[in-house]
């Protein structure tokens, strides 16, 4: 909470980006305390990782300090106080925190906890709810990511191929030889870890989204160390864009297969003779779809931002 207030007060935007990152990490810690390990994992990688990187790239493009004048402070205060008061009013007869007898704990939740092992045979209940019971939400989520990727691309685009081989600004750490060596050593294990997270989601925290973020992080690290040009030689961006589409379509086609087999959309039990192993295949495939889309979109978004940073640096020269 102190962090949040600090964010509101600090004028230096770099500092507040850092504070936002810290805030995000703190909430991840809170999520662990609340038993939501999957959520914590995601929050840490997204809030403290991806969004911090994106905000920093934006700031290098736009400048670091904000104008201290505030508009509408009084209106804002009134609106906020009214909303806050309404919420406090709402808490008056909320169920007690941690109470096992609340509607949330007694109505639908128990079905997942009691039946999911029998119906889907996956120990991590979060995974089975995410990918099977509420698989359509997750499909929607994948499409949201895809939509964001499309939006960023249409706004920033990736700049065309350049002949220049000078060290780009998007590789701020290029000069540090030690970092480069360490990085080279680190990247393969990170990629491996991503794969582990991808396929281990059935048993422990993890899954397609987190794996995608980690995978993308490895490539972003590579870019920071060796420059955008070097990275673009390894991965063609138009291919990445295609991959983003493929991920969504993989998810969708799993759904389509199940209704070609006479079951409802996303009913994985149609995928194999045995319903439970069908669920297994289904979850594996859709998580893969999520992973592919997330990786591809994250890379695209990062490259779009980095491309702009490079362009600006060139103009300044």
């Amino acid at each position: 909470m102190a962090t949040a207030i600090a964010i509101a007060r600090v004028k230096d935007l770099f500092a507040s980006v850092m504070l936002t990152g810290i805030y995000s990490l703190l909430s991840a810690v809170f999520f662990v305390l609340m038993d939501a390990v999957d959520v914590a994992f995601t929050e840490a990688s997204v809030g403290a990782g991806i969004s911090t990187i994106l905000m920093l790239s934006t700031l290098t493009l736009t400048g670091q300090y904000e104008d201290p004048t505030r508009h509408k402070t009084r209106t804002a205060l009134v609106v906020v106080l009214v909303t806050g008061a309404l919420l406090i009013f709402g808490t008056a007869d909320m169920p007690r925190f941690g109470d096992p007898q609340t509607p949330v704990q007694t109505h639908v939740g128990p079905h997942y906890l009691e039946k999911s092992y029998e119906e889907i045979h996956v120990p991590n209940v979060v995974t089975s709810v995410l990918a099977s019971y509420r698989g359509f939400d997750t499909f929607g989520e994948t499409v949201v990511i895809f939509a964001a990727g499309i939006g960023v691309l249409s706004l920033l685009g990736f700049s065309g191929r350049k002949e220049k081989t000078t060290i780009s600004v998007s590789a701020p750490m290029y000069q540090h030889r030690i970092l480069r060596v360490v990085g080279k050593v680190l990247i393969p294990p990170i990629l491996l870890f991503a794969l582990y997270v991808q396929f281990h989601g059935d048993f422990g925290p993890g899954g397609g989204f987190q794996a995608g973020v980690i995978f993308a992080a490895a490539i972003i690290l590579y870019t920071m160390l060796f420059g955008r040009q070097a990275a673009e030689e390894v991965i063609k961006l138009s291919w990445v864009r295609l991959l983003a589409a493929v991920g969504v379509m993989l998810y969708g086609s799993v759904g389509l297969i199940s209704f070609l087999n006479g079951k409802n959309f996303l009913d994985y039990s149609a995928l194999a003779a045995d319903a439970v192993s069908g669920q297994h295949y289904g979850i594996l495939l859709v998580e893969l779809g999520v992973g592919i889309t997330v990786t591809a979109v994250m890379i695209l978004v990062f490259f779009s931002f980095a491309g702009r940073v490079d362009k600006k640096a060139e103009e300044n020269e």
Binding site: V143, F146, I150, R241, L242, A244, A245, V246, V248, M249, G252, G255, L256, F259, N264, F265
Partner: peptide, 18 residues
């Protein structure tokens, strides 16, 4: 399957565009 086709048709058509 019409209700779901209604939604996933444009949803899957979007990546196909790419």
């Amino acid at each position: 399957h019409l209700p779901i086709l209604q939604v996933i048709l444009p949803l899957l058509a979007a990546p196909t565009c790419l």
